[in-house]
Amino acid sequence: MDMKRDYYEDVKLFTSGVGFFWFLVLMVFLAAYPFLVKNYYVYVANYIAINIIVVIGLNILVGYTGQISLGHAGFFAIGAYGTLILMTKLSFPFLLALPVSALIASVFGFLLGLPALRLEGPYLSIATLGFGLTITRVIGKIEFFGGRQGLHAPELVIGPWHLNTDRDFYYLLMVITVLMTVGARNLIKTRVGRAFVAIRDADIAAETMGVNLVFYKTLAFAVSAFYTGIAGGLFAFVLRFIEPELFSLFMSIMFLAMVVVGGLGSIMGSIAGACLLGWLDLQLRNILSLPYIGSWLESLSKSYFSLTGVSNIQFILFGLIMVLIMLFEPLGIFGIWIRTKKYWKTWPF
């Protein structure tokens, strides 16, 4: 890491030409991606992009501000339901409905941030967990929101474009994801981000330094909820169908796992965590159709386990990957990346 000489250097988006180059390469790749692969993989990319937005948002809260949340599926649900309700019942255009519902989510985030001022650790996790569970119950109770039957997404029209295939939606989603990522990065590099980090490291010290704890802690919740709300609104259009049971506690736990496995307090890590776990989540079901491994697992189940439950290997592998990553590197995938980078920098010494 080179020494930063002034503030502007620190907040600059690209520290070097090389970085900018790779950024461009990535953008070109993302733009060309839908033409390189089958439509199914575009759907996978969309699903992962949604996770990336949530995980970045959650990382702002967990990784940078040092709070914990097991209730982000609640904000996700608010975003998804808000967007669909505003569009179908109040005929908002999509581009207005999405930020408005994300703002609603962030209001809830602010409210949840209030008790969080005094709570930490397991106390905070139970409080947020309760929030996540309650929100879906309330949504399911209200018939106006479609009740337990769920809601279908309407046609998505933005200006002259009809975005109803995975490919079309992909581009909208990528633009938003890149914007949200850059936004998060900027937020972290500036005054607000530094306040968050100060709170994480020592909140009392931060307060004595003049960081307004009430303001910044609730802000962290609100920003995080905003990100998750945006992702929720987009998710409604990826799946095109939502129902309350979808936003389960398991979903919140997965989001948290993505943050931690990716790397706390790192945006690159969030992206990596969301990609890895999101991909595993969708793809592990194919484990049994792999050559060799599939038949080996089947014979193993026949002799020691049961064939009817063989699909549960997904769970075992998923858990194993999570445990192993965390055992060997508390900073997650991001930590592994840093270590490899360091190793190769001084290689062969």
Partner: peptide, 21 residues
């Protein structure tokens, strides 16, 4: 046949993969 774990997002993924693949 594929396992979706009763998660609509996974059902959608599996249906798309098989249908388009």
């Amino acid at each position: 046949m594929f396992d979706d774990g009763y998660n609509p997002a996974k059902t959608m993924a599996g249906v798309k993969e098989l249908q388009e693949g």
